[in-house]
Protein backbone atom coordinates (compact mmCIF):
# COMPACT_ATOMS: atom_id res chain seq x y z
CA UNK A 1 0.00 0.00 0.00
CA UNK A 2 1.30 3.38 -0.96
CA UNK A 3 2.07 5.39 2.08
CA UNK A 4 0.43 8.71 2.65
CA UNK A 5 3.59 10.67 2.07
CA UNK A 6 4.11 9.44 -1.49
CA UNK A 7 0.50 10.14 -2.37
CA UNK A 8 0.57 13.68 -0.98
CA UNK A 9 1.55 16.19 -3.65
CA UNK A 10 3.99 18.90 -2.70
CA UNK A 11 1.62 21.85 -2.88
CA UNK A 12 -0.87 20.52 -0.34
CA UNK A 13 -0.47 21.00 3.40
CA UNK A 14 -1.97 17.64 4.32
CA UNK A 15 -3.90 14.66 2.99
CA UNK A 16 -7.23 16.06 4.09
CA UNK A 17 -6.76 19.23 2.05
CA UNK A 18 -5.74 17.15 -0.93
CA UNK A 19 -8.79 14.93 -0.69
CA UNK A 20 -11.13 17.89 -0.21
CA UNK A 21 -9.67 19.49 -3.31
CA UNK A 22 -10.23 16.34 -5.37
CA UNK A 23 -13.78 15.98 -4.13
CA UNK A 24 -14.78 19.56 -4.87
CA UNK A 25 -13.02 19.36 -8.21
CA UNK A 26 -14.93 16.23 -9.15
CA UNK A 27 -18.29 17.72 -8.18
CA UNK A 28 -17.53 20.88 -10.14
CA UNK A 29 -16.60 18.70 -13.09
CA UNK A 30 -19.93 16.89 -12.81
CA UNK A 31 -21.68 20.27 -12.86
CA UNK A 32 -19.97 21.04 -16.17
CA UNK A 33 -21.11 17.63 -17.41
CA UNK A 34 -24.71 18.44 -16.51
CA UNK A 35 -24.46 21.64 -18.54
CA UNK A 36 -22.87 19.68 -21.38
CA UNK A 37 -25.72 17.14 -21.54
CA UNK A 38 -28.12 19.99 -20.79
CA UNK A 39 -27.77 21.42 -24.28
CA UNK A 40 -28.98 18.15 -25.77
CA UNK A 41 -31.81 17.81 -23.27
CA UNK A 42 -32.91 21.30 -24.22
CA UNK A 43 -32.95 20.42 -27.92
CA UNK A 44 -34.92 17.27 -27.12
CA UNK A 45 -37.53 19.18 -25.14
CA UNK A 46 -37.93 21.86 -27.78
CA UNK A 47 -38.42 19.37 -30.57
CA UNK A 48 -40.61 17.00 -28.60
CA UNK A 49 -42.86 19.94 -27.87
CA UNK A 50 -42.82 21.07 -31.48
CA UNK A 51 -43.49 17.68 -33.08
CA UNK A 52 -45.34 15.52 -30.51
CA UNK A 53 -46.83 13.11 -33.02
CA UNK A 54 -43.54 12.43 -34.77
CA UNK A 55 -41.76 11.90 -31.48
CA UNK A 56 -44.49 9.65 -30.10
CA UNK A 57 -44.48 7.30 -33.04
CA UNK A 58 -40.73 7.37 -33.53
CA UNK A 59 -40.07 6.57 -29.88
CA UNK A 60 -42.17 3.43 -30.33
CA UNK A 61 -39.41 2.23 -32.67
CA UNK A 62 -36.98 1.90 -29.80
CA UNK A 63 -36.58 -1.55 -28.30
CA UNK A 64 -38.24 -1.33 -24.91
CA UNK A 65 -36.87 -4.66 -23.63
CA UNK A 66 -33.30 -4.03 -24.60
CA UNK A 67 -33.55 -0.56 -23.08
CA UNK A 68 -35.02 -1.92 -19.87
CA UNK A 69 -32.41 -4.67 -19.68
CA UNK A 70 -29.68 -2.10 -20.14
CA UNK A 71 -31.15 0.05 -17.40
CA UNK A 72 -30.97 -2.92 -15.04
CA UNK A 73 -27.41 -3.68 -16.10
CA UNK A 74 -26.35 -0.12 -15.45
CA UNK A 75 -28.02 0.08 -12.05
CA UNK A 76 -26.24 -3.15 -11.08
CA UNK A 77 -22.95 -1.65 -12.23
CA UNK A 78 -23.58 1.29 -9.92
CA UNK A 79 -23.95 -1.18 -7.06
CA UNK A 80 -20.71 -2.98 -7.91
CA UNK A 81 -18.95 0.37 -8.25
CA UNK A 82 -20.22 1.49 -4.85
CA UNK A 83 -18.97 -1.79 -3.39
CA UNK A 84 -15.56 -1.26 -5.01
CA UNK A 85 -15.36 2.15 -3.33
CA UNK A 86 -16.43 0.62 -0.04
CA UNK A 87 -13.77 -2.09 -0.17
CA UNK A 88 -11.17 0.45 -1.22
CA UNK A 89 -11.95 2.44 1.89
CA UNK A 90 -11.30 -0.60 4.10
CA UNK A 91 -8.38 -1.80 2.01
CA UNK A 92 -9.60 -5.23 0.82
CA UNK A 93 -7.41 -5.50 -2.25
CA UNK A 94 -8.95 -8.59 -3.85
CA UNK A 95 -12.48 -7.35 -3.37
CA UNK A 96 -11.65 -3.96 -4.90
CA UNK A 97 -10.33 -5.72 -7.97
CA UNK A 98 -13.30 -8.11 -8.08
CA UNK A 99 -15.90 -5.38 -7.99
CA UNK A 100 -14.03 -3.17 -10.44
CA UNK A 101 -13.91 -6.10 -12.85
CA UNK A 102 -17.64 -6.70 -12.36
CA UNK A 103 -18.30 -3.02 -13.05
CA UNK A 104 -16.18 -3.30 -16.15
CA UNK A 105 -18.12 -6.33 -17.36
CA UNK A 106 -21.49 -4.72 -16.71
CA UNK A 107 -20.37 -1.55 -18.50
CA UNK A 108 -19.19 -3.68 -21.40
CA UNK A 109 -22.52 -5.49 -21.46
CA UNK A 110 -24.35 -2.19 -21.63
CA UNK A 111 -22.26 -1.06 -24.59
CA UNK A 112 -22.74 -4.44 -26.28
CA UNK A 113 -26.52 -4.21 -26.00
CA UNK A 114 -26.36 -0.60 -27.13
CA UNK A 115 -24.46 -1.56 -30.26
CA UNK A 116 -27.08 -4.25 -31.03
CA UNK A 117 -29.71 -1.51 -30.82
CA UNK A 118 -27.66 0.80 -33.04
CA UNK A 119 -27.20 -1.95 -35.57
CA UNK A 120 -30.94 -2.51 -35.57
CA UNK A 121 -31.52 1.15 -36.34
CA UNK A 122 -28.94 0.96 -39.09
CA UNK A 123 -30.69 -2.01 -40.70
CA UNK A 124 -34.04 -0.23 -40.61
CA UNK A 125 -32.64 3.02 -42.08
CA UNK A 126 -33.58 4.84 -38.92
CA UNK A 127 -30.42 6.93 -38.92
CA UNK A 128 -30.95 10.59 -39.76
CA UNK A 129 -29.61 11.54 -43.14
CA UNK A 130 -30.25 10.97 -46.81
CA UNK A 131 -31.51 7.38 -46.49
CA UNK A 132 -33.68 7.95 -43.47
CA UNK A 133 -36.96 6.01 -43.35
CA UNK A 134 -39.46 5.63 -40.57
CA UNK A 135 -41.95 2.98 -41.51
CA UNK A 136 -45.42 3.68 -40.25
CA UNK A 137 -44.38 6.86 -38.45
CA UNK A 138 -46.84 9.69 -38.08
CA UNK A 139 -45.27 12.90 -39.38
CA UNK A 140 -42.34 10.91 -40.75
CA UNK A 141 -40.64 14.06 -42.01
CA UNK A 142 -39.94 15.18 -38.46
CA UNK A 143 -39.31 11.72 -37.05
CA UNK A 144 -35.68 12.01 -38.00
CA UNK A 145 -35.33 14.72 -35.35
CA UNK A 146 -36.27 12.15 -32.74
CA UNK A 147 -33.52 9.89 -33.98
CA UNK A 148 -31.09 12.80 -34.15
CA UNK A 149 -31.82 13.36 -30.45
CA UNK A 150 -31.68 9.62 -29.77
CA UNK A 151 -28.27 9.20 -31.35
CA UNK A 152 -26.95 12.48 -30.02
CA UNK A 153 -27.94 11.75 -26.42
CA UNK A 154 -27.22 8.03 -26.25
CA UNK A 155 -24.06 8.55 -28.31
CA UNK A 156 -22.71 11.15 -25.89
CA UNK A 157 -23.72 8.88 -23.00
CA UNK A 158 -21.97 5.90 -24.61
CA UNK A 159 -18.85 8.02 -25.16
CA UNK A 160 -18.81 8.68 -21.44
CA UNK A 161 -19.17 4.94 -20.80
CA UNK A 162 -16.26 4.15 -23.10
CA UNK A 163 -14.05 6.70 -21.39
CA UNK A 164 -15.19 5.24 -18.07
CA UNK A 165 -14.18 1.75 -19.13
CA UNK A 166 -10.66 2.89 -19.93
CA UNK A 167 -10.44 4.51 -16.51
CA UNK A 168 -11.67 1.31 -14.83
CA UNK A 169 -8.92 -0.62 -16.62
CA UNK A 170 -6.39 1.82 -15.20
CA UNK A 171 -7.90 1.52 -11.73
CA UNK A 172 -7.81 -2.29 -11.91
CA UNK A 173 -4.10 -2.23 -12.75
CA UNK A 174 -3.43 0.15 -9.86
CA UNK A 175 -5.64 -1.76 -7.45
CA UNK A 176 -3.86 -5.03 -8.26
CA UNK A 177 -0.61 -3.36 -7.24
CA UNK A 178 -2.27 -2.51 -3.96
CA UNK A 179 -2.22 1.23 -4.42
CA UNK A 180 -5.54 1.85 -2.72
CA UNK A 181 -6.19 1.51 0.95
CA UNK A 182 -7.89 3.20 3.90
CA UNK A 183 -5.46 6.15 3.87
CA UNK A 184 -5.69 6.88 0.19
CA UNK A 185 -8.18 5.70 -2.39
CA UNK A 186 -9.29 9.03 -3.84
CA UNK A 187 -9.15 7.91 -7.52
CA UNK A 188 -11.55 5.03 -6.87
CA UNK A 189 -13.91 7.30 -4.99
CA UNK A 190 -13.79 10.05 -7.62
CA UNK A 191 -14.32 7.58 -10.41
CA UNK A 192 -17.29 6.23 -8.45
CA UNK A 193 -18.86 9.68 -8.59
CA UNK A 194 -18.29 9.81 -12.34
CA UNK A 195 -19.74 6.35 -12.90
CA UNK A 196 -22.85 7.11 -10.86
CA UNK A 197 -23.27 10.34 -12.78
CA UNK A 198 -23.19 8.49 -16.09
CA UNK A 199 -25.78 6.08 -14.67
CA UNK A 200 -28.06 8.89 -13.62
CA UNK A 201 -27.91 10.40 -17.08
CA UNK A 202 -29.16 7.09 -18.42
CA UNK A 203 -31.93 7.04 -15.80
CA UNK A 204 -33.18 10.24 -17.47
CA UNK A 205 -32.54 9.08 -21.01
CA UNK A 206 -34.45 5.83 -20.68
CA UNK A 207 -37.88 7.35 -19.94
CA UNK A 208 -37.34 10.27 -22.31
CA UNK A 209 -36.39 8.13 -25.28
CA UNK A 210 -38.11 4.79 -24.62
CA UNK A 211 -41.05 5.20 -22.27
CA UNK A 212 -42.99 8.40 -22.92
CA UNK A 213 -45.94 7.74 -25.21
CA UNK A 214 -45.28 4.04 -25.17
CA UNK A 215 -48.80 3.24 -24.07
CA UNK A 216 -50.24 5.64 -26.60
CA UNK A 217 -52.06 7.28 -23.70
CA UNK A 218 -50.15 10.54 -23.71
CA UNK A 219 -51.03 12.75 -26.59
CA UNK A 220 -49.05 15.92 -27.14
Amino acid sequence: MASQSTALQHHFENAEQQKDASTIGMWVFLVTEIMFFGGLFLAYMVYRQAYPAAFASASNKTDLWLGAANTTVLICSSLTMALAVHYASIGKKNLIVLFLVLTLLLGGTFLGVKSVEYHDKWVHHEIPGANFECEGCADAQHASLFFACYFGMTGLHATHMIIGIFIILYLIVKARKGDYGPEWHTPVEMFGLYWHFVDIVWIFLFPLLYLIDRSGGLKG
Binding site: M35, L40, A43, A130, S144, L145
Partner: peptide
Protein backbone atom coordinates in the same frame (compact mmCIF):
# COMPACT_ATOMS: atom_id res chain seq x y z
CA UNK B 1 -16.57 29.27 -17.40
CA UNK B 2 -17.80 26.05 -15.84
CA UNK B 3 -21.51 26.72 -16.37
CA UNK B 4 -21.47 28.35 -19.79
CA UNK B 5 -18.63 26.81 -21.74
CA UNK B 6 -20.02 23.24 -21.79
CA UNK B 7 -23.16 24.57 -23.44
CA UNK B 8 -21.30 26.25 -26.30
CA UNK B 9 -19.16 23.14 -26.58
CA UNK B 10 -22.18 20.91 -27.14
CA UNK B 11 -23.73 23.51 -29.45
CA UNK B 12 -20.68 23.68 -31.69
CA UNK B 13 -20.48 19.91 -31.54
CA UNK B 14 -24.02 19.77 -32.91
CA UNK B 15 -23.05 22.23 -35.64
CA UNK B 16 -20.14 19.99 -36.56
CA UNK B 17 -22.43 16.91 -36.59
CA UNK B 18 -25.02 18.77 -38.57
CA UNK B 19 -22.52 19.94 -41.12
CA UNK B 20 -20.76 16.60 -41.39
CA UNK B 21 -23.71 14.20 -41.20
CA UNK B 22 -26.80 16.37 -41.87
CA UNK B 23 -28.71 15.01 -38.91
CA UNK B 24 -31.14 17.91 -39.05
CA UNK B 25 -30.79 19.51 -35.62
Amino acid sequence: QILGTPVVAVTLFLVVLERGLHIGF
